[in-house]
Every structure is written in structure tokens, then in C-alpha cells.
Simulated scan of single mutants.
Amino acid sequence: MPVSYTYDYKSTQSTSTPQGTSSRTVHATPSGTTISSTQQPAGGQATTQTQHYPAGGNQGASEPETLSKEEAERRYLEAMEDEYAKREGGA
């Protein structure tokens, strides 16, 4: 019987300064990755920007997806964590 794996990864990073606050949440599931960024200037209105990247695709674009250095590093680290988890689990 084939073995299937599912995963759910969520990470949040927040920063507060006298100028305001910001946070970034990355939520990865088998269906894709969602990145939400929230900015709130001191005494101002919060704004949130959300992007979803479907699993196994690049949002239907005809050109290859361009990643920021941070996003490429994040994806690499997640892939390495998954690989080590497979090895530790004996899979």
C-alpha cells in the first residue's frame, strides 16, 4: 500500500517599532502556500496583503515564476526540513 504524506506549516514573524508594526505569516498546506503581510503605521489603519501560490504551479502564468531571495531561501529550508523529517521517520 502506498504511503501518503500531508503537511501543514505555519510561521509568523512580527516587528514593532515606534513607526508602527508589521507581521508576515506563511501558511503552507498540500494545496499551496499563502503569504499574508500586515502593516500598521503608529496611529494609522492596518493594511493586509495576501498572496496564494498553488501547489505544483505558478498561478497559471506562462513565464517562469520569479522569486525573491527570501522566498527562495524559505522554500529551500522547507524542502530540507521535509527531507530530514522523512529520514528521521524512516520513510
Score class of each variant (00 low, 15 high):
residue 69 K to C: 03
residue 65 E to Q: 11
residue 44 G to A: 09
residue 10 K to T: 15
residue 8 D to W: 14
residue 52 H to C: 01
residue 16 S to V: 05
residue 73 E to D: 15
residue 2 P to C: 14
residue 41 P to Q: 08
residue 61 A to N: 13
residue 78 E to W: 13
residue 25 T to I: 05
residue 3 V to K: 15
residue 76 Y to C: 15
residue 69 K to I: 05
residue 30 P to F: 05
residue 70 E to P: 00
residue 7 Y to P: 01
residue 45 Q to L: 07
residue 18 P to Q: 08
residue 15 T to R: 07
residue 72 A to L: 14
residue 74 R to D: 10
residue 82 D to K: 13
residue 58 N to T: 05
residue 34 T to L: 05
residue 9 Y to P: 02
residue 64 P to H: 09
residue 16 S to C: 00
residue 38 T to H: 01
residue 13 Q to N: 11
residue 7 Y to G: 08
residue 66 T to C: 02
residue 71 E to W: 07
residue 90 G to L: 03
residue 22 S to H: 01
residue 76 Y to D: 15
residue 12 T to D: 02
residue 74 R to V: 01
residue 49 Q to D: 07
residue 56 G to L: 03
residue 2 P to M: 12
residue 83 E to D: 08
residue 74 R to T: 12
residue 6 T to E: 11
residue 20 G to W: 08
residue 28 A to W: 03
residue 6 T to M: 07
residue 21 T to N: 00
residue 66 T to E: 02
residue 55 A to R: 09
residue 39 Q to T: 13
residue 32 G to E: 05
residue 56 G to W: 14
residue 83 E to H: 08
residue 68 S to N: 01
residue 58 N to M: 06
residue 57 G to A: 13
residue 78 E to V: 06
residue 33 T to C: 11
residue 81 E to W: 03
residue 80 M to F: 08
residue 90 G to H: 01
residue 47 T to W: 09
residue 15 T to N: 07
residue 36 S to N: 04
residue 72 A to W: 09
residue 59 Q to A: 03
residue 22 S to F: 01
residue 90 G to V: 07
residue 76 Y to S: 15
residue 58 N to P: 03
residue 72 A to P: 06
residue 17 T to E: 11
residue 28 A to V: 12
residue 76 Y to G: 09
residue 26 V to Q: 00
residue 42 A to K: 11
residue 62 S to P: 03
residue 63 E to K: 04
residue 30 P to S: 10
residue 5 Y to K: 15
residue 23 S to A: 09
residue 52 H to P: 00
residue 38 T to P: 00
residue 91 A to K: 06
residue 73 E to N: 15
residue 34 T to Q: 04
residue 43 G to C: 07
residue 76 Y to F: 14
residue 18 P to C: 04
residue 30 P to E: 07
residue 64 P to S: 09
residue 90 G to T: 02
residue 85 A to C: 05
residue 29 T to N: 03
residue 85 A to G: 03
residue 68 S to C: 03
residue 90 G to E: 05
residue 39 Q to A: 15
residue 79 A to P: 00
residue 83 E to S: 14
residue 87 R to V: 07
residue 37 S to E: 08
residue 72 A to C: 13
residue 35 I to H: 00
residue 81 E to V: 09
residue 9 Y to C: 06
residue 56 G to E: 10
residue 64 P to C: 06
residue 85 A to P: 00
residue 52 H to S: 10
residue 66 T to H: 04
residue 79 A to H: 09
residue 89 G to L: 14
residue 36 S to C: 11
residue 12 T to S: 14
residue 80 M to R: 12
residue 50 T to P: 08
residue 43 G to V: 07
residue 8 D to C: 11
residue 80 M to I: 15
residue 75 R to C: 05
residue 46 A to C: 00
residue 60 G to H: 12
residue 63 E to H: 04
residue 78 E to R: 05
residue 52 H to N: 08
residue 73 E to R: 11
residue 5 Y to H: 15
residue 38 T to K: 02
residue 8 D to M: 10
residue 84 Y to E: 08
residue 56 G to T: 07
residue 49 Q to N: 11
residue 12 T to V: 13
residue 15 T to W: 06
residue 1 M to T: 14
residue 76 Y to M: 15
residue 42 A to H: 13
residue 52 H to L: 02
residue 24 R to D: 00
residue 15 T to F: 04
residue 71 E to V: 02
residue 46 A to H: 11
residue 12 T to L: 03
residue 10 K to E: 12
residue 45 Q to H: 10
residue 83 E to G: 09
residue 32 G to I: 04
residue 25 T to H: 01
residue 47 T to I: 12
